[in-house]
Design a protein around this nucleic acid. Structure first.
Lengths: 341, 341
DNA sequence: GATCGCTCCGCAATCGTTTGTAGTATCGGA
DNA sequence: TCCGATACTACAAACGATTGCGGAGCGATC
C-alpha cells in the first residue's frame, strides 16, 4: 500500500484545500497562518495517506539537503568509530543524514571528497583529516558551507575545532609517572606536521618542568608515523641515547605498543624496568600483556560535540572560532609502576 | 569566483543554445542527438563556468539520488571499519554517496534507520545488521529499493548476501589444529540466533568428523554474546566439562581472548597446554601476548563486493539471490602449537 | 452602509534538471 | 521548383515542494 508515495498534492486533494495551504499547515513554522481546523484536517489527511515530504523537492526549493558530510582520514582505524558514532547520534536525532567520506588515499583524496560533498550540497562538513593546516579547497569550502574540525585543529584557529585537551592529557600521564617516583622520563612523539604530534610534544616538555624535572629536548624522539614499527625504532633510539630512562610517555597507543617491543627487545620488563603510557586508550588495549596505562580521550563525546556546534553554525548562531578542549582521563593499568631499584 | 553555482541555464546562455540542448549535450547518453560542434561549444561553456549539475534537481526529475544507505549494527566495532571502507571505495568511484546509519540501539533502531533511508530515496541499501531473519520493514523495503546483505544472511536466502565462508574458515582452524596433532578440540560458539553463531558451530561439528574426530555436541559451549567475558565463562564451562581438551576453536576473536583468560586462570599456558584460534583477525590481534592464530575474513573485499552487487541490482541486472561466499585465510601465530606431552 | 482591517486561503512563480514533442533549417532527388 | 527525409534544436511540461502576493470573506467601526 505504501509503495507508491503520496505527494503533497494528494494530501491537499484529500483535505479539500489548495496544495499551498497543505504545505503551510504541515510546516510548524507556518501553521499559524492557517485555520486550526484546517490544520487538523490536513494533518489527518497526511496521516491517512502516510505522507512524507520529498526531501529532494524540498531541498531543491529551500536549498538545504538536511545532510552533512563527515570526512575521515581512515575508516579502518578503530579510533574513528566512536567519533562517527557520536556525530551520527546527534545529527540523526535532528533529522540530518550523515555522508561518510573515507580519505584513505592521502590529502588530495580528502580534497576531492570535500568537493564531492559540496557538489551534493551538504549543509555542513565535519573534517577529521589530519594536518595542522587546512587545504585551500577546504578553506574555500568554508565560505560555502558550515564547517567544524574534529580531533584536529588548524594553527590559526580559523575554523571551530573540537579536540582533546592534549596538554591536560599529557599532564595526566606525566604526573602519574611523577607520583610513582619517576624522574627520568622520555617521550616518543608523533610526527611534527600533525597537530597532535606537535601539541603533545610541547605539552610533554611543559609538564616536565612543571613537575620539577628537566625538560631537555633530547628526551623526545619523533616517530615517523603513528604506527607500531616507527614507535619501536623511535623508542630504541631514545633508550640508546638515554639508557637510564625509567618511563616513556608515548604520544599514541600504537607508539606505546612500539615501546613495548623496544623495551622487550632490550630484555627489560615493562612496568618494572620501564613504565609506558599510551594515548587514546583504543579498544583491546586493556587486553594487552601487560595491560597498558593510557590517557583516554572521549572520542564519542568529541563527535557529538562537533555535530552540535555544526548544527549551531548551520542555524546561524555565532560560534566562536577556535578550539573546544575536551578533558581526558587516565586509565591506570599495569604498564606503569614505581621505578625499579 | 565559484561560490555562486552556475546552472544549466547559464551554460546554455553562454553557449548560445537552449537549455534542453545544453542538457542533452552534456549527457553522454543523449549527446549523439546534438551536433558535435554544438556539443563542443556547450562543453566548453560548461568548463568555463565550472558547471556542476545540481544533484537535487536531477534526482527530483530522474528519481535517483545517487546515494546508498549502509546500516551498521555498531560503528564502534572495529570489524565494520573495513566493510565500510570497501563499500565506500567502490560506490564513490561510481559517483554514489554513502549514507551511514549506526543501529546501536537494537533491532528497532535499525528499522527506523531503514525507514529514514527510504524516505531519503536512497537508490540502494546495504545491511550489516545481525540476525538470521530480517525484519518486516526490511522485507518491505526490498520492494522499493535494491538491497544487499553483508556479513550476514537470511535463512531463506531471499536477499543477496555477501558473507565469509564460515564453513571453510572453521575448516582452516580445525585442520590446522589437527595437523598439529590435536585430537581433543572444543568450540566456544557465538549466540545461536546470530547467523555466524549457528553457522560456525555447525561447521565445527562437520569438520570434526571430516578430520576423523568425534563430533560430540557437548564439545561446543555457546557464549551469550560476542564479547570477552561471555567467552571466558563459556570456555571455563567447556574446560570443566572436558579437562582433557588441548585446543579450542573460538567463533570470534573476542571469544578467543575470553578463552585466553580462562586458560590462564586455570594456570595453563596458551599455545602449549591449550591452543586457541580466533576468528576475524581484528587489528591488534597480532600484538596480543601470545599473538593469536586466527581465521582472517576479507572484510574490505566483502564490503566492496556487496557494493558491486548492489550496483548491479540498481542497474537492473539479474543478480541471483543467495549468498556469495568469500574465502577466508588463516594467520598462524603463537596461540597454537602442538599439544603438550 | 461604506470603509477598514484581519484572518484565512488560493494563485502562480520558482528551485534546476530531464525528456517527449514540435518545429526549422538543410540537402538530395524528382 | 517542390517534396520528403534527415539532422538538429527549441518549446514546454513535468518532478514535488516552498513562498510572496493578492484576494475573498467577515466583523467591527464610524
Amino acid at each position: 500500500m505504501s509503495s507508491i508515495r503520496s505527494t503533497l498534492k494528494d494530501v491537499a486533494r484529500e483535505a479539500g484545500v489548495h496544495i499551498s495551504t497543505a504545505s503551510r499547515a504541515l510546516n510548524p513554522s507556518t501553521a499559524f497562518i492557517v485555520h486550526p481546523v484546517t490544520v487538523e484536517r490536513v494533518a489527518e489527511a497526511a496521516r491517512k495517506l502516510g505522507y512524507r515530504p520529498h526531501p529532494l523537492a524540498r531541498g531543491l526549493r529551500t536549498n538545504r539537503t538536511m545532510s552533512v558530510g563527515v570526512i575521515i582520514p581512515d575508516v579502518e582505524n578503530p579510533l574513528f568509530g566512536p567519533i562517527i558514532a557520536g556525530v551520527e547520534s546527534v545529527l540523526v536525532e535532528e533529522g540530518y543524514s550523515v555522508l561518510i567520506g573515507n580519505a584513505d588515499r592521502g590529502p588530495d583524496h580528502a580534497d576531492s571528497l570535500v568537493e564531492d560533498m559540496l557538489e551534493r550540497h551538504v549543509d555542513g562538513l565535519i573534517l577529521a583529516t589530519p594536518g595542522r593546516i587546512v587545504s585551500e579547497t577546504a578553506r574555500q569550502a568554508q565560505r560555502d558551507v558550515s564547517m567544524v574540525l574534529v580531533n584536529r585543529s588548524v594553527d590559526d584557529d580559523s575554523i571551530p575545532a573540537i579536540v582533546g585537551d592534549d596538554h591536560a592529557g599529557i599532564g595526566l600521564a606525566v604526573r602519574h609517572l611523577r607520583e610513582l617516583g619517576h624522574e627520568r622520563i622520555g617521550h616518543v612523539a608523533g610526527p611534527e606536521w600533525v597537530s597532535t604530534g606537535r601539541g603533545r610534544r610541547d605539552a610533554f616538555l611543559d609538564w616536565m618542568s612543571t613537575v620539577g624535572l628537566e625538560a631537555e629536548r633530547d628526551l623526545v624522539e619523533e616517530a615517523e608515523w603513528y604506527q607500531v614499527e616507527p614507535g619501536m625504532t623511535a623508542a630504541l633510539a631514545l633508550l640508546s641515547r638515554h639508557p637510564d630512562l625509567t618511563a616513556i610517555v608515548a604520544a599514541n597507543d600504537l607508539l606505546g605498543l612500539g615501546c613495548y617491543r623496544a623495551v622487550r627487545s632490550l630484555g627489560k620488563v615493562i612496568g618494572v624496568d620501564v613504565s609506558i603510557t599510551g594515548y587514546n586508550d583504543m579498544p583491546l588495549l586493556d587486553l594487552m600483556q601487560p595491560s597498558m596505562t593510557a590517557v583516554r580521550v572521549p572520542y564519542r563525546r568529541m563527535g557529538a560535540d562537533a555535530a552540535s556546534t555544526l548544527l549551531a553554525l548551520i542555524a546561524g548562531e555565532d560560534v566562536a572560532p577556535g578550539r573546544v578542549l575536551l578533558s581526558p582521563t587516565i586509565a591506570i593499568r599495569s604498564s606503569t609502576g614505581p621505578p625499579a631499584g
